[in-house]
Simulated scan of single mutants.
Amino acid sequence: MSKYKYILGDSLKAIKKFKDNTFKLIITSPPYNVGKEYETKKSIELYLEEQNEIIKELVRVLHTNGSICWQVGNFVDDKEIFPLDIFYYQIFKDNGLKLRNRIVWQFGHGLHSSKRFSGRYETILWFTKTEDYTFNLDSVRIPSKYPGKRHHKGPKKGQYSSNPKGKNPSDIWEVLLNDWEKEIWNIPNVKSNHVEKTEHPCQYPIELVERCVLALTNENDWILDPFAGVGSTVLASLKNDRNVIGIEKVKKYRDIGVKRVKEFDDGSLRFRSIGTPIYDHTKSKLSQIPLEFNNNESLRSI
């Protein structure tokens, strides 16, 4: 049975107590410095300096064959966008890690902007410590678009050109009608109508973590989330027979996470499983263009 710990406290202090080369995967979504209730907004320079201290310790405790997945969005200051993944890239490089993928997670819902295009994506930076890292491609393959396609010339003429287990998914994870059906992965963000929604304002879905857990670790490996929130990483790890430690400084979020783990253990936790179809909004009456929109007079009031 998988083991887990859910530590309440400061991430940096907790990480310093761990042994070197412990965790096969470190995956998290750190505070974005946007002034949420669990963070104090500060200058981008000070924010990154503090994150660098934590990252140095994370690199120390990362297994030689391990990976770090760092999921971030944008920092906004005085209506100007600062793409955090670009700033973080140099920090990880300075700490000796190598970037394997910059994964774009695209979702269909969020706040609407009036002075710029509405933001609908975040990124996951996947770094490794060495060239010898765990990568289980077969665990995350998706069906080929043309599985019956054959080579039409050369020494393999007449042979199937696709892998019978499916193909390597792309580095863009987007909303589609069916999960794992095409090359772009379908992962909706956690908003008010999502089955996993709690009171945490920046909760990410279990299956977003699950893809990384399956590909970058093996059963019984140890996983760490230094900003665990309400437990998406903890749950994705336990669900796939991995050991995990989550660290969260806000007691109410940690308590929600512990409660969700107990619900998972007794089978009552509601979560969106991989393979669940996305709601087809085109069938809703709300998706139909109102007849009033054909009236120019009505449009002037919008």
Rank of each mutant, 00 (worst) to 15 (best):
S273K: 15
N294T: 13
D225P: 01
S144P: 06
K252V: 05
R211N: 10
L97I: 10
Y88F: 15
D241V: 01
P155V: 13
Q106H: 04
I206N: 03
N189S: 11
G35P: 08
S268Y: 10
G154T: 05
I55Y: 01
D85Y: 15
N33I: 02
E37P: 08
L238D: 02
D94P: 05
L214I: 06
G257Y: 01
E80L: 07
N21H: 10
G229T: 02
D266R: 12
H63S: 15
L84F: 06
Y6E: 00
L137H: 06
K145G: 02
E122L: 05
G257K: 06
I247Y: 04
N65P: 00
I206P: 00
F117T: 14
L291Q: 13
I26F: 02
F75L: 12
L111A: 14
Q203M: 04
V234F: 00
L111F: 11
Q159L: 10
V190T: 08
W222D: 07
G96L: 08
G246P: 08
N294E: 12
L46R: 10
N101E: 12
L8G: 05
F264W: 12
D266I: 02
H112G: 14
R272A: 05
P30G: 06
I55M: 02
K149S: 14
E219V: 09
S301N: 15
S118C: 10
I223L: 03
Y88H: 13
Q106Y: 01
W126E: 01
N65K: 15
E80F: 04
V230I: 03
R300A: 14
D10K: 05
V61R: 08
K129A: 02
Q71G: 05
L125F: 02
I206T: 05
N101T: 08
F127C: 00
P147V: 05
D241F: 08
K285A: 13
M1Q: 09
D77N: 13
P201T: 03
V175E: 12
I256W: 03
K191P: 00
D78F: 02
E207A: 11
S144A: 15
K42G: 03
D77M: 07
M1T: 12
V230R: 00
R272F: 05
H63E: 11
I278G: 08
K5P: 00
G158E: 11
T22H: 11
Y47D: 01
H200Y: 11
R120S: 14
K93A: 15
N243E: 03
R272C: 07
